[in-house]
């Protein structure tokens, strides 16, 4: 196996390309700029959440594909699989924590209008 003798011939070294990395920078940066411009318009919370979640997902997917080079090739497939298997852990960790505390606040905290008036 060539990669065994010459480390620079390893598939993970060969996978990099100027075009891919520049595209990753432009795509991810454009998504963040789009999110910034939209957030400045101060849309309703639900609409803002949808826009920001979309921009974030797009940015992370382009980074996964173009920066990390994740795909189903022999060199990368186990990284792709392990990332996919970790995604439910992110959803459980963040989703259930936020849901549990939102539910807790609704039962134990004062009215949100009162809470807002307490700021500063």
């Amino acid at each position: 196996m060539a990669a065994h003798n010459d480390p620079l011939a390893h598939p993970e070294v060969r996978q990099g390309s100027v075009l891919r990395y520049v595209l990753g920078f432009v795509a991810s940066g454009a998504a963040m700029y789009f999110a910034y411009v939209e957030a400045l318009g101060k849309p309703p919370v639900v609409e803002l959440l949808e826009i920001l979640a979309g921009a974030l997902l797009f940015s992370l997917l382009t980074q996964a594909a173009l920066f990390f080079g994740l795909d189903i090739s022999r060199a990368q497939i186990w990284k792709s699989v392990s990332l996919i298997l970790t995604v439910p852990l992110f959803i459980i960790m963040i989703g259930i924590t936020v849901w549990a505390f939102a539910s807790l606040y609704n039962r134990t905290m004062p009215d949100p209008a009162i809470m807002n008036s307490m700021a500063m």
Binding site: T86, L89, T97
Partner: peptide
């Protein structure tokens, strides 16, 4: 990936504490 889970834990904590109370 495990490091990302640490970050996720801190983000979850931030989401919970991000209110006037």
């Amino acid at each position: 990936l495990s490091d990302a889970l640490i970050i996720a834990a801190v983000v979850a904590c931030y989401a919970v504490l991000d209110n006037p109370m």
